[in-house]
Each structure stands twice: as C-alpha cells, then as structure tokens.
Amino acid sequence: MLEIRDLKVWFDVREGFAKSRPLRAVDGVDLELRAGEALGIVGESGCGKSTLARAVLRLLPPTAGKILWLGRGIEALDAAAMRPLRRDLQIVFQDPLASLDPRMTVGEIVAEPLRVHEPGLDRTARGARVRAMLERVGLSADVIARYPHEFSGGQCQRIGIARAMVLQPKLLVCDEAVSALDVSIQAQIINLIADLKRDFGTGVLFVSHNLAVVRRLCDRVLVLYLGKPMETAPTAALFARPLHPYTRALLAAVPIPDPARQPARLAATLGGELPSPLDPPSGCVFRTRCPHAAAECAERAPDFRPPNSTALATQRVACHRLEEI
C-alpha cells in the first residue's frame, strides 16, 4: 500500500552568521506498509521518526527519495493534487487538546472531514456518521454540542481519533498519540486503536518512543537513530532477538516494574549521549556509543541488509559487525 525508497528530509539550519548547514532529519529510509498492517517507528528524540511520518503525509516536503502510495509516486504532488488523497491519509497527534480547534464543537470537528471529502452527503446522513463514529470511539453522542476544552486529555484524544477515522482512511498515522496520557487512560486508547485497526482494516504508522506500546500495537517495527534506519523486523522477532546494538540498548533501557530485575537492568545501561544531528559521526552514526565499534565503523556507513543467517531473514540490520557480535 505504501512504499518509501531512500527518503531524505533535510532542513537548512543557520547558526549566527555561519553558512547554513543541512540537518539530515531523515537520511535514506526505506519502508513498506501493507494494507491493514501496523508499523511502529521508534527511536529517541531527534531520530527523525516524526519527520518521517509527516513527510509520508506530505505535511513536510521530502528532499529526495520516493513515496509510493498505492503504486503512485506522491513525493512531488502539489497541495491541490494531494487533496483527494488525503481522505485515505489521516493523522492523530500527541497533544490532544492543541490539535482540536477550540472554536468548533465536537460535532463540527468530527464532521469537517466529511464536509470536505464527501460534500454530497446531506446533513442528516453526516450527523448519523458523526454520531456513529463518536460512539465507536467510546463517547456518547450527546458530546456533539460541546467544545474541546470541556473534555479531559483522554477524551480529546478520542475526539481526535474519531475525526481521523470518520472517513475510514486506509492509513492512520499516530504521532506519539498516547504519550501525553496518564497510564490508566493510555491503556484505554491503546486498546481503542487496536480495535479500530482490526475492525476497519486500517494500516497504521505508529510513531512512538514507548517500545512497550509499540510491542502491543504493531506487526513490524523500524528502529531509527539520527535519521538512519538501524533495524527493522517483525515485532515478535525484534523483541525476542534484537540484532542491532542500538536496538539492544534501547530495549535494555525500558524500565520494567519488576523490583527483582530492574535494578540490575539499570546498572547495565548504554553510556554516552546522542551526537548533534548537525554533525553526525562518520561511517555508522551509532558508533560513538556502540560497545562493539571497530575501525571500519568509522570509515563506511553499513548497508541496511538482511543477516547472513537465513533463520534471521525477516530482519534487516545496518551493522558491519552483525555476524560477529
């Protein structure tokens, strides 16, 4: 359904009087998403995960590379040519309240995509679709006359999801959609997204820094670091046997509420800090924090490739030393 080839999104950054330098937010990412599949895009801040998701929706202009949507290249389409495609490409943002227009009622917010993309629909039919969708996301239909500020964060996120899903899009992008929510609310929204994906067969790009959430919701995972893909694998494989040293470090750093295991996990965490994306390391971008880095890692960027072992053929990893470590 969606295919991305060697996508690059660079920004010009000017510091003082210095000549502008490119910030390579996304630097050569390939991905594929089949209909009804959920792909998790994970990594720490500055890894390019949100930029990637926004570029896919053409909310940001790609610098280079191809974005094929249902077989058609959309990387160069202008706003007018993109408009008809937008009914199938929807997004839910992190901050639920900020992403809803405070002057519109909930009913108007959820009806807006229908007005734009299904102008033939009469008032009654539109109202029925809106009410049905609101109920589907767990809100009673009597919320339609109220305004976003009257709702809690979790309810606003349900409204945002209703707005995104009312057209039954083929692709739903969730950009840290559960990150701002309290634990008990987060669980409700995770289950809601899982149910909607299953019932509507929606493909999902799930951008998150929370690996435990991604493990629950996604079929496959793509791990990014400084704009580059480190590893991609089916979810079960990635969590059972992470192959890239960065994936391993990331998984080891996720806190688990088990007092018998967590203190030891903490003691063995990855050192160092994320390098500046304006001045990424040569060769493999992860080498400055990698416990296995060798001379060749500084010289040449590793290919993003399947491991030599056929047993691991579903995974792709960018690491020179994959077979040794």
């Binding site: 309810q155 634990v183 008990s184 609310i185 987060q186 995770i190 289950n191 959430v213 998984l251 688990i256």
Partner: peptide, 25 residues
Amino acid sequence: RALLRSMPRIDDPLDGPLHTIAGQP
C-alpha cells in the same frame, strides 16, 4: 493493582487486550 496491570510492559505475555481502568482520574 489496576495501575500495574494497565501499564504496557516489554515483558508481558500479550495474551489479550491491555487491562484498563474505566473512567479517568
């Protein structure tokens, strides 16, 4: 108990939907 159960973990068995607490704080 409910808070612990509703927290997604990287080591849970994934045998069913996440436990939820109805309503909000």
